[in-house]
Amino acid sequence: KKSYVLIKVKNPKTKETHTIVVPEENLEEVLKALASQPNVKVVDIERFP
């Protein structure tokens, strides 16, 4: 059974918020990819039960 993680990201320029759902096993690479985006800020990470 896969567990999923909900990542909320915000664009500081446009103030838009997006929610991305990723499998927990991919969380680290997704966070690394997001960290390299200049106008993306991770605001929240939630685990799915």
Rank of each mutant, 00 (worst) to 15 (best):
E46A: 13
I45M: 06
K13Q: 15
P49L: 10
S36H: 08
P23A: 12
L34Y: 04
K10P: 00
Y4L: 05
V30P: 00
E46F: 13
V22W: 03
K1Q: 11
S36A: 12
A35R: 10
K15L: 11
L34A: 01
K8D: 01
I45E: 01
V43Q: 04
S36W: 05
I7G: 00
T19N: 10
P49Y: 07
V5F: 15
E29I: 10
V30K: 03
V22F: 02
E29F: 11
P38L: 07
E25F: 03
L34Q: 00
K2T: 13
L34K: 00
V43D: 03
T17V: 13
P23W: 15
Q37V: 09
T17Q: 10
E16N: 04
P38M: 06
E25V: 05
E24F: 09
A33T: 08
Y4V: 03
A33W: 12
P12M: 15
F48M: 12
E29H: 09
V21M: 12
N26I: 09
D44A: 14
S3G: 14
H18P: 00
V5W: 15
K1N: 12
A33G: 08
V42G: 01
K8W: 12
Y4R: 02
K32C: 07
V5Q: 01
E25Y: 05
R47P: 14
V5I: 07
H18A: 08
V21S: 05
H18V: 12
V40F: 11
I7F: 01
A33E: 09
K10G: 04
L27F: 05
T17H: 08
K32D: 05
P23F: 15
Q37R: 12
F48E: 05
K32N: 09
I45H: 02
L27Q: 02
E25T: 05
L27D: 00
N39H: 10
Q37E: 06
Q37H: 07
L6M: 09
T19F: 11
V22Q: 01
Q37I: 11
E16F: 03
K41V: 15
K41H: 14
R47S: 08
K1F: 13
P12R: 15
R47A: 10
L6Y: 10
K15D: 15
V30I: 11
D44Y: 14
V30C: 06
E29C: 07
K32I: 07
E25K: 05
P49M: 06
K8Q: 05
E24H: 05
N11D: 10
A33Q: 12
V42Y: 02
K1L: 13
V30Y: 07
K15Q: 14
A35T: 08
N11C: 05
